[in-house]
Simulated scan of single mutants.
Amino acid sequence: MLMERLILVAMWLFGFVGLFLFIPRKDRRKGVLAFLMFQAVIWLCDMPGFKFDLLRAPVRELPKATDLPLTIDYFFYPALFAIYYVHRRVNGNLWTRSSYFLVWISASTLFDVVLERYTDLLEYEFLKWYGMWMYIAFLFYLSQVCCNWFFKDKALFQAERWGTNEN
């Protein structure tokens, strides 16, 4: 139980440090939106999974309030996605973009599998590692599509458009 609590604290520390060190000041707006978008997507997708016992989190922060692991789902993975989204290659060729995406997904899945196998923070009931890989890939892809859609129209964010009074 102590090891799990230390891992949760380490996830908070690495998440905060990662957000501040790996997201440049000029891209903080993109990072915050990516963080919040991933939280929304993972909340919609994890709620049924934990409700119907596809996944379980025996050790969690608020055991009487929710079945969801708050640190993992609502802070650490969104922080990873925010770092990924800010640093992804927009103008690269398909091979570069795909390999970057696959490396992030594989690293996140490896971390998730290690948590499941060696701690009580997560337990997969019916999923195998490749199912979790597909699930994390789906979460990253859907969050990326939503963030790309949000940042598509650059004219919405120009100060002149909102600040002028055209009479």
Results as ranks from 00 to 15, higher is better:
Met1Cys: 14
Met1Tyr: 15
Leu2Glu: 07
Met3Asn: 10
Leu6Cys: 08
Val9Gln: 00
Val9His: 00
Ala10Trp: 13
Ala10Cys: 15
Met11His: 13
Gly15Cys: 02
Gly15His: 01
Val17Met: 01
Gly18Ala: 00
Leu19Ser: 01
Leu21Val: 11
Leu21Phe: 13
Arg25Val: 12
Lys26Phe: 01
Lys26Thr: 03
Arg28Lys: 13
Gly31Ala: 02
Val32Thr: 11
Leu33Glu: 06
Phe35Trp: 12
Phe35Asn: 04
Phe38Asp: 02
Phe38Leu: 03
Trp43Asp: 04
Trp43Leu: 02
Met47Trp: 10
Pro48Ser: 01
Lys51Asn: 10
Phe52Gln: 12
Leu54Arg: 08
Leu54Thr: 13
Leu55Met: 05
Ala57Trp: 07
Ala57His: 10
Ala57Thr: 10
Pro58Arg: 00
Val59His: 11
Arg60Cys: 02
Glu61Tyr: 11
Leu62Tyr: 09
Ala65Tyr: 14
Ala65Gln: 12
Pro69Phe: 00
Pro69Ile: 00
Leu70Lys: 13
Ile72Met: 15
Tyr74Val: 00
Pro78Phe: 00
Ala79Glu: 05
Leu80Asn: 14
Phe81Thr: 03
Tyr85Ser: 01
Arg88Ile: 06
Asn91Ala: 08
Gly92Gln: 10
Leu94Val: 03
Tyr100Ser: 04
Tyr100Ala: 04
Phe101Ala: 05
Val103Ser: 08
Ser108Asn: 01
Ser108Val: 00
Thr109Asn: 15
Phe111Leu: 03
Phe111Asp: 03
Val113Thr: 09
Leu115Gly: 09
Glu116Phe: 05
Tyr118Ser: 10
Glu123Tyr: 12
Glu123Ser: 12
Glu125Thr: 12
Phe126Thr: 11
Phe126Lys: 12
Leu127Glu: 06
Leu127Arg: 04
Lys128Ile: 06
Tyr130Gln: 04
Met132Trp: 04
Trp133Asp: 03
Trp133Val: 03
Ile136Lys: 15
Phe140Lys: 11
Leu142Tyr: 09
Gln144His: 06
Val145Thr: 06
Phe150Arg: 15
Phe151Arg: 04
Lys152Phe: 15
Asp153Ile: 14
Lys154Cys: 06
Ala155Ser: 01
Ala155Glu: 02
Leu156Met: 10
Phe157Ser: 12
Phe157Asn: 13
Ala159Ile: 07
Glu160Phe: 08
Arg161Lys: 11
Arg161Asp: 07
Trp162Asp: 08
Thr164Lys: 09
Asn165Phe: 12
Asn165Gln: 13
Asn167Met: 08
